[in-house]
C-alpha cells in the first residue's frame, strides 16, 4: 500500500513573541501495510515540552512498530511450524504499550536531566491505518479525522479538554492511564488527518467535535492532485502560515495528512 503524506508543524505567533520554541511534534512510519502516525503538542506551561512532544511521538511509534514486528515474526514461526492459527493481533494492547513506552521514555529523560516530569508535559495522538481498518489511542486535545472518497470528513477521535480552554490532561499527569482513549473502526478510509489543537478552531466543531468538510475536502483534493510530492511538506507549512489561519490561532499548528494512492486502493496484499 502506498501513501501520499504531507506533514508540518509550525511555531505559533504567540510563541514567537515570548521566545518559546515550537512545542508540537509529529512522527510518521510506514511498516509494510501499516501506516503509523503520531502527533504531540507540548504544553505551553511546561519548559521542555518541545523535547517532551518529540520524545513521546518517536517512542510511541517505534514501540508500536516493535510490537507489530514481534507479532509478525511469531506468526511467521507459527505458520512455519504448521501449528494452530496464530492469535489475532491485539491492537488496543499494542497501542497501550506504545503509550506506556512514551511515558517511560519521558520518565527516563526526566531522571537523566533531574528535571520534573511535568516539564515534559504533552498530549499524544497515535493513529494506525491498515487496509480496511483503523485504530487510535489519544490523550489530551488535538483531533484525528477520517477522510473518505464518497462521504464528508468524519472525526475519529475528539479532543479532550478540561473545563477551561487552556487546560488539558497531558501524558505526564499521574492519572494519565484513565485519560487514554482507544477507538477503532472497520472501514476503508481514503485517508486520515491528525491535527494539534492549534488547527482545531478552524475545522473541529467546539460543541460536537465534528469535522468540517469545507476544510478537509480541499486539503484532500490538493494532496491527491499534487503532481509531485517533493516539497509538499513545505507547501503545507505555507498553508498553515497563511494570515487566514494565523488569524484564527496564534498557537503552534501541526497537520499530518495521509492519503492512499489512487491506484493501490483496491490492491489487497496477502
Amino acid at each position: 500500500m502506498n501513501w501520499r503524506i504531507a506533514k508540518a508543524s509550525i511555531i505559533g505567533t504567540g510563541h514567537d513573541k515570548t521566545g518559546m520554541p515550537c512545542q508540537d511534534s509529529h512522527y510518521v512510519m510506514q511498516l509494510r501495510d501499516t501506516l503509523i502516525i503520531a502527533v504531540s503538542d507540548g504544553l505551553g506551561s511546561a519548559k521542555l515540552s518541545h523535547e517532551g512532544s518529540r520524545i513521546a511521538c518517536a517512542s510511541a511509534v517505534e514501540a508500536y512498530a516493535n510490537t507489530v514486528e514481534a507479532a509478525f515474526n511469531t506468526t511467521a514461526l507459527t505458520l512455519a511450524a504448521d501449528q494452530h492459527t496464530p492469535a489475532p493481533f491485539n491492537y488496543e494492547s499494542a497501542l497501550q504499550t506504545a503509550f506506556f513506552s512514551a511515558r517511560n521514555a519521558l520518565e527516563r529523560e526526566s531522571n537523566r536531566t533531574q528535571l520534573p516530569l511535568r516539564d515534559y508535559a504533552c498530549t499524544l495522538l497515535v493513529a494506525v491505518i491498515e487496509a480496511e481498518s483503523w485504530y487510535s489511542m489519544h490523550i489530551g486535545d488535538g483531533t484525528i479525522v477520517g477522510l473518505y472518497t464518497q462521504q464528508p470528513a468524519k472525526t475519529l477521535s475528539i479532543p479532550e479538554n478540561g473545563e477551561f480552554i487552556n487546560s488539558t490532561t497531558p501524558i505526564t499527569s499521574d492519572d494519565y492511564q484513565s485519560h487514554m482513549r482507544y477507538a477503532h473502526g472497520h472501514e476503508l478510509l481514503a485517508g486520515v488527518a491528525l491535527l494539534s489543537d492549534g488547527v482545531t478552531p478552524m475545522c473541529i466543531n467546539y460543541k460536537s467535535g465534528s469535522a468540517y468538510d469545507g476544510f478537509f475536502r480541499p486539503l484532500q483534493s490538493w494532496l491527491a492532485d499534487a503532481t509531485q510530492l517533493s516539497g509538499i511538506d513545505e507547501s503545507l507549512k505555507q498553508f498553515l502560515d497563511t494570515p487566514k489561519m494565523r488569524q484564527k490561532s496564534d498557537d503552534d499548528m501541526t497537520l499530518v495528512l495521509a492519503l492512499r494512492e489512487h491506484n493501490s486502493e483496491t490492491v489487497h496484499s496477502l
Partner: peptide, 9 residues
C-alpha cells in the same frame, strides 16, 4: 504546488 483554499467551520 498551490496552497489549498479551505473554508472554516
Amino acid at each position: 504546488t498551490t496552497i489549498p483554499d479551505v473554508t472554516f467551520d
